[in-house]
Simulated assay, not measured.
Amino acid sequence: MASSSPNVVLLSVAIWGLTFGGAPTLLQTAIADTAGDGADVAQSMLVTIFNLAVAGDGIAGGLLLEHVGASSFPLTLLLLGLSVV
Rank of each mutant, 00 (worst) to 15 (best):
A32K: 00
L63A: 01
L65A: 13
V85K: 13
G21S: 01
V41Q: 12
Q43D: 11
D37Y: 12
A60K: 03
V41P: 00
D57K: 13
N7V: 14
N51L: 13
F50I: 11
D37I: 10
L27D: 03
S44V: 12
A70I: 14
V68S: 04
L78H: 06
G62R: 01
V54F: 15
Q43P: 01
G22H: 04
T19V: 11
T25R: 07
A32D: 08
A39K: 05
L64G: 05
T76F: 06
S3W: 08
S71C: 01
L79D: 03
S4I: 07
S5A: 15
I59K: 07
I15R: 06
S83G: 12
I15E: 00
V68F: 01
A14Y: 05
A14Q: 04
A32C: 02
D37T: 14
L65F: 00
S72M: 08
G36V: 06
L10W: 10
V54L: 15
E66H: 07
T34I: 07
L77V: 02
F20Q: 06
M45A: 15
L26E: 06
L78W: 11
G38R: 07
G22I: 04
S12G: 14
A39M: 11
D37W: 14
G69A: 02
P24C: 10
G61A: 08
L52D: 11
L65E: 02
S83C: 10
G17V: 04
A23R: 13
A39T: 04
L11S: 09
G36R: 09
V84S: 07
I31F: 04
V13H: 13
A23T: 14
A70M: 10
S5K: 05
S72K: 03
F73C: 01
F50A: 10
N51R: 10
G69L: 04
L46C: 08
A53V: 15
V68E: 00
L64Y: 03
G36F: 12
A70Q: 11
F50Q: 08
L63V: 13
A70K: 13
A2K: 08
I59W: 09
A30V: 04
Q28D: 10
I59F: 14
L10E: 15
S44R: 15
A23F: 13
L77I: 00
L27N: 01
V9Q: 04
W16T: 11
T76Q: 04
I15T: 15
G21R: 07
G58K: 11
L26Q: 12
T34E: 08
S3P: 00
W16R: 10
L79R: 09
V41I: 14
L64N: 02
S5L: 07
V8S: 15
D33L: 03
Q28K: 12
L64E: 02
A30D: 00
